[in-house]
Design a protein around this nucleic acid. Structure first.
Lengths: 203, 203
DNA sequence: ATATATTTTAAATGATTGTTTAAATTTATC
DNA sequence: GATAAATTTAAACAATCATTTAAAATATAT
């Protein structure tokens, strides 16, 4: 339940997030943000000192959000097939809800990686999950193809994220409208689940 | 063999391509291009009328290059496993040679799809390749899992392109340097080949 | 109610943006 | 070698950029 009169600082932060996600850092002006927040242009710098600082604050939140749900799932004590399915479903819902998210993250990091990795303790957390132990045990007892986390995790995530990142090009290339694409994406999601599980799980 | 004194128009075009690929349309200024080309700032507009027109010209070339090799391979009369392997190898080499290419294409299309799809006859060509016939025949005689081109093609391409698009985040997440990443990418490439072939080809 | 602190405003800052101008220079044509 | 065309240049254009200023408005504290 939100307060009806939101604090100006939060209004700006949320407006900035929307604009940055849509247009990227370079494509966003301070005036875009002020207009989206319906606030005076000077307030951005009054509360956040600079466009850069505001961006960094938002980017950190966005990146942590991106990893947070996945992290929870990776640590669940469930069968590995169910886990893969859940990660993919979670990713899929995230992409549907926030279509600009993944290309935004990828592009901003690609353009200036050094400035965007502060103390990302979430990275360490991702490296050390229960899934890692499951992979080791499965490889040891022969139920899973021997693979490291860094090999299997991108295989799980790339399928869904790739088609959403390239939504417009896929639509154009395969002559789909938005409705077609929605159906197509669901199909594709199931292919990915099956393909990855078939590859990882032996027998 | 190039002429020693390159035409100014070509110098600008090539310089602009380098800068656009690296910084994107929004992140590139006319002065960046002029500086990279070592030419006077006014020449960009003298030859190309505007930054926008220069960009559109370059983007069209880039997008056609991206599809051209793949198209040739898709039409080859070779076994489908070999074809998948070749597409992935080709993609891999393209990403290694031009690391900014795929994120550039994805991001620019994502931000403004409508302006970037002129008469892309290459799209139709991609839809109608020999691979399509192979998929139909394979599905009919039971050697291949029944799949459409639009389902299998992204599965083939996403693995390699995803890790190169997210190179920096993968390096940071899994604590790799450039050398580690190069080895890792090669490993990953083989996983992708095996995974996709196992899924598509029955038995 | 008055004084103080906080927030918001309109206006301006100087730098940079894409683009244009008109003159200077080079190249091509006769 | 003179004339015309094409190319290149330095300088300027108005618009917009991120940011700052100082005054006005509002809220808080006493």
């Amino acid at each position: 339940m939100k307060c009806v009169t939101e604090k100006s600082e939060d209004k700006i932060r949320e407006a900035a997030k929307r604009v940055f996600l849509k247009k990227g850092f370079d494509g966003t002006t301070s005036r875009d943000i002020a207009k989206e927040a319906d606030m005076n242009i000077a307030l951005t710098n009054y509360y956040f000192r600079s466009k850069e600082k505001l961006f960094l604050e938002i980017f950190k939140d966005v990146l942590e959000d991106y990893f947070q749900n996945m992290l929870t799932i990776l640590n669940k004590d469930i069968d590995i097939k169910a886990k893969i399915s859940e990660i993919i479903d979670n990713d899929f819902e995230m992409m549907k809800k926030e279509p600009d998210l993944i290309i935004f993250i990828m592009n901003e990091i690609h353009k200036a990686p050094q400035r965007l990795f502060p103390d990302m303790s979430i990275f360490r957390q991702v490296r050390e999950t229960y899934l890692k132990k499951q992979l080791e045990e499965g490889a040891a007892n022969g139920t899973l193809r021997p693979m490291q986390l860094e090999n299997i995790l991108p295989l799980i995530k790339c399928g869904v994220e790739f088609i959403f990142m390239g939504k417009e090009i896929h639509k154009e290339l395969f002559m789909m409208n938005d409705e077609d694409f929605a159906k197509y994406a669901e199909e594709q999601k199931e292919h990915i689940k099956a393909m990855v599980c078939n590859y990882l799980v032996i027998g």
